[in-house]
Amino acid sequence: MAAIEIAGLARHYGERAALDGVSLDLDAGQTLAVLGPNGAGKSTLLRVLGTLLRPHRGTVRVLGRSLPEHAYAVRGRIGFVGHDALLYRELSGQENLLFYARLYGVGPERVRELIETVGLGPRAGDPVRTLSRGVVQRLAVCRAVLHRPELLLLDEPLAHLDPAALELVAPLIGPPTGCTRVLTSHDPARALEEADLVLALRGGRVILLDRPGILDAAGVRELYR
């Protein structure tokens, strides 16, 4: 079953196209790596899939529902990690997660469980503004998976994480989850390792959509030129 079906997707920024004629299908349980230089449209694509931006043209179906009409129905099934942690600086990590847990109708025990999983125990009560970027990123991952989403949209999810933290969040957003995943990364080699499908964008257009095997290191460098 296809988790994501996109056909002819376009999204404008005024008279400029941020995405132009993007089409792809992704099966449930698979991982899509989105590559491309800054401004290629990677984040825009993830925000469209996350129901944060409406498609201007084309059709987008996520988890069997078309966007934007059924955005409401798919929101509770998507987990999104973006550039911003989406956490209030004055509140503690725990308060932030409890707040979002209420928005998703999730009980507090799930928050405790996640805080344990990512090894935040002693610092869960500190205001987010006092935490290091890496700890904040762990909290951001917790926030994204509070409601056990089926689809993970990960925009540079591993930024600021040291190797130990990477291991802690892997069970939440890594391949072991078995979730359908769409990810961008500052580390293309790593993204390719986990990917079943690679999409390369430039200027909002698809320049490559294929299995990761066909790309070698030189090919990847070419994509970022």
Binding site: T51, L52, D84, L87, Y100, L103
Partner: peptide, 17 residues
């Protein structure tokens, strides 16, 4: 302002509410 600067807007918009 806090919602805009600290991402609470997106956090809210992502939730099924």
């Amino acid at each position: 302002v806090a919602d805009l600067e600290q991402g609470g807007f997106d956090g809210f918009l992502l939730a099924p509410v």
